[in-house]
Simulated scan of single mutants.
Amino acid sequence: MSIVITIADPADPPVRAMVEALDAYLAALYPAESNHLLDIEIMRQPQMRFFAAFEAEQVHAIGGCWLHADYAEVKRVFVTPAARGRGLARRMMQRIEAEAIASGHTVLRLETGIHQPESLGLYRSLGYAGRGAFGDYPADDPNSVFMEKLLA
């Protein structure tokens, strides 16, 4: 069976379970002040595009694209431990990038953490480069890594 990445409602129970799993994962890695998480209701707003990777009825990955006025932002990318190694994070990032481009954005930014080497490696392999803090993120958070990519 193949995996399909589609627009998803973050409030749907299987998708919400993935969001909650991501919250728990990040809470174990970082102090609360370093977890810059959007809640379910914000992720349901019109400026947010949220995706889930389904295989049959099972969700294996999630990710979102928050459309700001002058840039788009990667939010909430997560793959279940059982589904890692199948290229789902890369496919989710490609879907997020396509959505940003389709929405007229030429810059995609993200914030991730220092304790996520797999994420950092993925983002670098996709052409993301380090940059300073942006938006409402604190510039002095030692746990944050900020990255950006110019989209074609």
Results as ranks from 00 to 15, higher is better:
4 V>G: 03
4 V>T: 13
6 T>S: 15
13 P>K: 02
13 P>R: 00
14 P>I: 01
15 V>I: 11
17 A>W: 03
18 M>L: 13
20 E>S: 11
20 E>G: 03
21 A>W: 00
26 L>K: 00
28 A>W: 00
31 P>G: 03
32 A>K: 08
33 E>M: 02
37 L>R: 08
37 L>K: 00
38 L>R: 06
38 L>K: 07
40 I>E: 08
40 I>H: 00
40 I>K: 00
48 M>C: 15
49 R>P: 02
50 F>R: 00
51 F>R: 00
54 F>H: 14
54 F>A: 06
54 F>C: 10
58 Q>G: 04
59 V>T: 08
59 V>D: 06
59 V>K: 01
60 H>E: 12
60 H>Y: 10
66 W>F: 13
67 L>I: 11
68 H>M: 14
72 A>S: 12
76 R>V: 09
76 R>A: 09
78 F>N: 02
85 G>M: 07
85 G>K: 03
87 G>N: 03
97 E>T: 11
97 E>A: 11
103 S>D: 12
104 G>W: 05
107 V>Q: 13
109 R>F: 02
109 R>N: 10
113 G>K: 01
114 I>F: 01
114 I>C: 09
116 Q>G: 12
121 G>N: 14
121 G>Y: 05
121 G>E: 09
124 R>I: 13
129 A>I: 13
131 R>M: 15
131 R>C: 15
138 P>I: 08
140 D>R: 03
143 N>V: 07
144 S>R: 04
144 S>E: 07
145 V>C: 14
146 F>C: 09
